[in-house]
Lab assay of single mutants.
Amino acid sequence: RRPMNAFMVWAKDERKRLAQQNPDLHNAELSKMLGKSWKALTLAEKRPFVEEAERLRVQHMQDHPNYK
């Protein structure tokens, strides 16, 4: 499986939080909310998630050198 990108790293915990706050929302609505929230973040706010995604990408390359 591919490593998570920055959005997916961020959305993993954010989706849980949103789902707890909005138990009646379907996954499609949660995804739309997550997309809008991600776009609203500044580059500085996204940076930790971008860095974690890069760390995961490098780790994935080391763990699976033949993955394409």
Rank of each mutant, 00 (worst) to 15 (best):
32 K>E: 04
55 R>L: 09
8 M>L: 09
56 L>C: 06
46 K>T: 02
36 K>N: 10
35 G>K: 15
57 R>E: 10
47 R>Y: 09
60 H>W: 12
39 K>G: 10
43 L>E: 14
44 A>M: 10
23 P>L: 03
48 P>G: 05
64 H>F: 11
57 R>Q: 12
21 Q>N: 07
66 N>P: 09
18 L>E: 00
57 R>S: 09
52 E>Y: 06
3 P>S: 12
48 P>S: 05
34 L>Y: 01
48 P>Q: 06
34 L>E: 00
10 W>N: 11
59 Q>S: 12
18 L>H: 05
42 T>E: 05
61 M>Q: 15
13 D>L: 08
54 E>H: 04
4 M>D: 12
21 Q>V: 06
37 S>Y: 08
68 K>S: 07
66 N>S: 12
20 Q>C: 04
7 F>M: 09
13 D>M: 06
47 R>E: 09
29 E>C: 02
37 S>A: 15
2 R>K: 04
32 K>L: 07
3 P>N: 15
67 Y>N: 15
22 N>K: 12
10 W>M: 01
60 H>R: 12
36 K>A: 15
19 A>E: 15
19 A>K: 07
41 L>H: 03
10 W>R: 02
56 L>S: 05
54 E>S: 07
37 S>D: 08
24 D>W: 10
44 A>I: 09
45 E>P: 00
39 K>M: 05
49 F>T: 04
9 V>K: 04
66 N>D: 14
52 E>A: 09
57 R>D: 03
65 P>K: 15
57 R>T: 10
24 D>R: 09
56 L>Q: 11
37 S>R: 13
66 N>Q: 13
54 E>T: 06
28 A>S: 14
30 L>C: 02
44 A>G: 06
2 R>W: 04
32 K>S: 10
41 L>E: 04
28 A>T: 11
23 P>T: 08
12 K>M: 12
16 K>L: 02
44 A>N: 07
55 R>F: 03
5 N>Q: 00
42 T>Q: 01
16 K>V: 05
4 M>V: 11
8 M>S: 13
60 H>Y: 15
27 N>G: 12
8 M>E: 15
57 R>H: 05
17 R>Y: 06
26 H>E: 13
58 V>W: 10
18 L>P: 01
19 A>D: 03
64 H>M: 13
53 A>T: 03
23 P>S: 06
3 P>I: 10
49 F>C: 02
65 P>D: 09
33 M>Q: 09
13 D>Y: 06
3 P>W: 02
19 A>P: 02
56 L>G: 07
4 M>E: 11
50 V>C: 11
55 R>Y: 00
48 P>C: 04
31 S>A: 06
46 K>D: 00
61 M>L: 13
16 K>Y: 07
5 N>E: 04
18 L>Y: 01
32 K>D: 15
30 L>T: 02
58 V>F: 08
12 K>P: 00
5 N>Y: 01
38 W>H: 00
48 P>Y: 00
14 E>T: 02
2 R>E: 05
8 M>A: 13
16 K>C: 07
51 E>A: 05
31 S>N: 13
4 M>Y: 04
24 D>A: 11
13 D>E: 15
56 L>D: 06
39 K>Q: 07
61 M>H: 13
42 T>N: 08
27 N>S: 12
61 M>K: 14
24 D>C: 13
43 L>F: 15
26 H>P: 15
62 Q>H: 15
2 R>T: 12
50 V>F: 11
44 A>K: 15
66 N>I: 00
7 F>D: 09
38 W>N: 02
61 M>N: 13
26 H>M: 14
44 A>F: 07
61 M>F: 09
62 Q>G: 11
29 E>P: 10
65 P>Q: 14
52 E>G: 03
1 R>T: 11
47 R>T: 13
67 Y>H: 13
28 A>W: 05
27 N>A: 13
36 K>L: 09
8 M>D: 15
3 P>M: 13
3 P>Q: 09
41 L>C: 04
5 N>P: 01
57 R>F: 08
19 A>V: 13
28 A>R: 11
52 E>R: 04
10 W>F: 07
45 E>K: 07
52 E>I: 03
28 A>H: 12
40 A>V: 08
33 M>H: 06
25 L>S: 06
24 D>V: 05
31 S>G: 14
4 M>C: 00
27 N>H: 05
62 Q>W: 06
58 V>E: 13
9 V>S: 04
63 D>T: 11
31 S>V: 09
38 W>Q: 01
29 E>D: 15
58 V>L: 15
14 E>P: 04
68 K>H: 00
35 G>V: 12
34 L>C: 08
29 E>W: 00
2 R>A: 04
43 L>P: 15
57 R>L: 08
61 M>C: 13
37 S>Q: 14
7 F>S: 03
41 L>P: 01
2 R>V: 07
15 R>C: 10
20 Q>L: 09
45 E>Y: 00
18 L>W: 04
28 A>M: 09
33 M>L: 07
64 H>I: 14
52 E>P: 01
28 A>L: 08
47 R>I: 01
40 A>M: 11
25 L>H: 05
8 M>H: 14
25 L>A: 13
19 A>G: 07
3 P>G: 11
3 P>K: 15
9 V>E: 02
15 R>W: 05
21 Q>F: 10
48 P>W: 05
17 R>E: 02
30 L>S: 04
60 H>K: 09
46 K>I: 01
49 F>R: 02
15 R>Y: 10
48 P>M: 10
21 Q>A: 14
27 N>V: 08
1 R>E: 13
60 H>M: 11
37 S>G: 07
52 E>M: 07
1 R>N: 08
43 L>M: 14
23 P>I: 01
55 R>V: 06
40 A>Y: 04
32 K>Q: 08
35 G>F: 06
58 V>A: 14
20 Q>R: 12
30 L>M: 12
50 V>A: 10
23 P>E: 03
30 L>R: 03
62 Q>F: 09
26 H>T: 15
38 W>I: 00
14 E>R: 01
64 H>A: 14
55 R>Q: 07
30 L>V: 11
58 V>S: 14
15 R>F: 05
3 P>E: 15
60 H>L: 09
12 K>Q: 12
56 L>Y: 03
7 F>E: 08
53 A>S: 07
26 H>R: 15
24 D>F: 08
6 A>N: 00
2 R>F: 08
34 L>N: 01
38 W>D: 02
33 M>I: 13
39 K>L: 03
36 K>H: 11
53 A>M: 00
48 P>N: 00
40 A>K: 09
46 K>G: 00
10 W>T: 03
68 K>G: 08
60 H>P: 07
42 T>H: 01
32 K>A: 12
63 D>K: 11
7 F>Q: 05
44 A>S: 11
11 A>F: 02
46 K>R: 11
47 R>H: 11
33 M>F: 03
9 V>T: 05
58 V>Y: 12
8 M>K: 14
26 H>I: 14
50 V>M: 09
34 L>G: 00
22 N>I: 05
31 S>M: 15
9 V>P: 01
31 S>Y: 15
40 A>W: 05
64 H>T: 14
40 A>D: 08
24 D>Q: 12
15 R>G: 07
35 G>D: 15
20 Q>I: 12
39 K>A: 13
58 V>K: 13
17 R>H: 06
17 R>Q: 06
4 M>S: 07
14 E>H: 06
62 Q>T: 13
39 K>S: 09
47 R>F: 02
40 A>L: 10
25 L>V: 10
42 T>K: 04
48 P>A: 02
50 V>I: 10
61 M>Y: 10
57 R>K: 13
29 E>N: 14
52 E>W: 04
29 E>I: 07
26 H>K: 15
39 K>E: 14
36 K>I: 05
33 M>V: 09
33 M>S: 06
60 H>C: 12
12 K>I: 08
27 N>P: 15
6 A>G: 07
39 K>N: 03
17 R>C: 02
19 A>F: 07
40 A>P: 01
63 D>M: 07
44 A>C: 11
26 H>D: 07
27 N>E: 10
38 W>F: 04
20 Q>W: 06
62 Q>R: 09
31 S>F: 02
62 Q>E: 13
15 R>Q: 12
24 D>K: 08
61 M>G: 12
55 R>D: 04
67 Y>D: 15
34 L>V: 04
54 E>C: 08
3 P>C: 04
49 F>A: 02
44 A>Q: 13
48 P>E: 05
54 E>W: 04
66 N>V: 11
34 L>I: 02
45 E>G: 02
14 E>G: 00
68 K>N: 12
25 L>F: 02
62 Q>M: 09
64 H>W: 09
39 K>H: 03
23 P>F: 08
6 A>R: 01
10 W>E: 04
17 R>D: 02
43 L>A: 15
43 L>N: 10
35 G>R: 15
7 F>Y: 12
1 R>C: 14
54 E>V: 04
47 R>L: 12
54 E>G: 07
47 R>V: 09
15 R>T: 09
62 Q>P: 12
39 K>C: 15
28 A>K: 05
38 W>S: 02
58 V>Q: 13
